[in-house]
């Protein structure tokens, strides 16, 4: 039994302690916006926020999140998340879209820490998120666009 908070709601799940958070969230809690892409923290499609920090949920044992706050793509909100999503839509970043939940979660985490990132900052923060459609150029542009929006 593990109890944690997800998107502001307290939940208790009855799974093996070593079950990755990703599968708990997807299969037990039915929130399927976070994706499975690699299972070994190589692609970032499963990115969630744990107490506000981005983590790869596919390698995070559920026991590690006991008593902590997990935020998924379904629950991320606020001015940074809004600015990121608006920029993604405005610039039509997505293609297949499968990686984009993770991209958005990583971008929100970056902008929360660094409100005016350089291209190099973006490359460093986002290089753990693979996009096989290679939408990277628009991801870079959209993060700058969101930063501009947030600056007001």
């Amino acid at each position: 039994m593990t109890t944690f908070q997800i998107n502001g709601r307290d939940v208790t799940v009855s799974v093996e302690d070593d079950t990755p958070l990703l599968w708990v969230v997807r299969d037990e809690l039915g929130l399927v916006g976070s994706k499975f892409g690699c299972g070994v923290a190589q692609c970032g499609a499963c990115t969630m926020h744990l107490d506000g920090q981005p983590v790869r949920a596919c390698v995070t044992p559920v026991s590690d999140v006991a008593g902590r706050k997990v935020t998924t793509i379904e629950g991320i909100s606020g001015s940074v998340a809004d600015a990121v999503r608006d920029a993604w839509v405005k610039l039509d970043v997505v293609q297949c879209g499968y990686c984009q939940s993770g991209q958005v979660m990583s971008a929100v985490a970056l902008l929360a820490e660094s409100p005016a990132p350089s291209d190099a900052d973006i490359d460093t923060a986002m290089s753990g998120n693979i996009c096989r459609c290679n939408t990277y150029q628009r991801i870079r542009t959209a993060i700058h666009d969101a930063a501009t929006t947030l600056k007001g």
Binding site: K35, T72, Q100
Partner: peptide
């Protein structure tokens, strides 16, 4: 003009085969 699928692909709402859950389904 804009893609019809941009919004749903930035909110986690777009469903793929991986996300299909049906009553009684086995994996």
């Amino acid at each position: 003009f804009p893609r019809l699928d941009s919004k749903a692909k930035t909110t986690g709402a777009r469903l793929y085969t991986q996300d299909v859950q049906l009553p009684g389904m086995l994996v």
